[in-house]
Design a binder for these strands. Structure first.
Lengths: 202, 202
DNA sequence: AGAAACATACCGACCAGTTGGTATGGTCGC
DNA sequence: GCGACCATACCAACTGGTCGGTATGTTTCT
């Protein structure tokens, strides 16, 4: 089990990556520490060397999720479009294209963990909330610049629309899982795109 | 434990009601059989007399959820409105008013269970999927009658919009839990209402 | 050498499900 | 109209296994 020079020192990252995979599939509570160690190819000693509890790992996994997805989105090419409206719609198209065959691969770690932990593990819930809310906030500037005067006059705020977009995306994952059919998620993002389009300048 | 005539024969229902409460708060996997027995005021023997496993209880709880919420919605007064558009928007207003202070009380049992069970308990997932999809389907006739010719020409179907409405509602519950703020759910349903309004005859 | 990064063996608590019963109310022969 | 019989509903103690976490090493890097 002891690893070579190159493999040593990676246990923490491997556990975090394993957490994303396993928890998205099984959920947080059904995932045991041993499950995570096995998936990461690591022993329990390594686990508790890096995380003082299973809860601490979940919080770290939520942060890890924010980091890795943050990099994915910030390197996506919709940022290079010239108008705010194109960038907002480009974000939705990008998210639409992320949907594949397996909900365990395309759905959101922190959305999954939120439902299991909101009332019982405040630390995990806060980390999940931060992750989702910070992601939404990254869209606010473009949305604000793109909103039509009519929409603003109707009381629609960029913050509220940014959150609504995350609502639809999270809900789309649930329905995909419930119906065992990812196409429901795609259809719902199409509806969202149509709605957002009516609110933005073109 | 349950001795009197009036109390006997109610253990099954009490367990199902307890399951709705406890699982919405803690999630399915974190809820133990003993938790459910304690909440129902019943012993373990009674539990396994009525349900051959914890999984079987979850399936029964999903069906129970469909039944009780089905009654709630079918007795709501938006059905008495005269036009399909008014009934569809009345449904959304009704759902909006259902949102209170505590997500554990206003969120959806089967939406919660779906995320935890979709890959690991197919029986529970199917029961949850059925519950949500059947609920969505109950709106289809009114939506179909209310959709404008333009919307239909754009390829929007009543089935797809009915599902999108459930997507937003489920997603709204997640964001409410994540942000620990039910007002996000209300705001998102407002966005949904605005979108739906643009697609229906008035 | 000393510290960080692991590995292994183990523990007490807990959990789903079982077992072997008891209490209750209905049915049917008489 | 009553006692034998029985099915259903429930109870409490227990079991085999699992889980999060710990204690105590061993290896590797600097």
């Amino acid at each position: 089990m002891l690893k070579t020079r190159a493999e040593r020192g990676t246990a923490r990252i491997r556990l975090l990556d394993a957490a994303v995979d396993v928890i998205r599939t099984q959920g947080y509570n059904a995932t045991t520490v041993d499950d995570l160690c096995a998936a990461a190819g690591v022993t329990k000693g390594a686990f508790f060397h890096h995380f003082h509890s299973k809860t601490a790992l979940a919080v770290a996994a939520a942060d890890h999720w924010s980091t890795t997805t943050g990099e994915l989105f910030s390197s996506a090419d919709y940022h290079e479009r010239s108008t705010p409206t194109e960038r907002v719609l480009g974000y939705l198209d990008f998210r639409r294209n992320l949907i594949g065959d397996d909900p365990a691969k395309f759905s959101c770690l922190v959305g999954t963990m939120t439902q299991e932990t909101f009332a019982t593990y405040p630390d995990i819930r806060d980390a999940c909330g931060q992750s989702i809310l910070a992601h939404a906030q990254r869209l606010e500037a473009d949305i604000d610049a793109a909103l039509t005067a009519d929409a603003k006059a109707d009381g629609i705020t960029a913050a509220s629309l940014a959150i609504h977009m995350q609502v639809v995306i999270q809900g789309a994952f649930i329905l995909s899982k419930a119906a065992d059919d990812p196409s429901l998620a795609v259809d719902s993002i199409d509806h969202l795109r149509r709605y957002v389009t009516t609110l933005l300048d073109t």
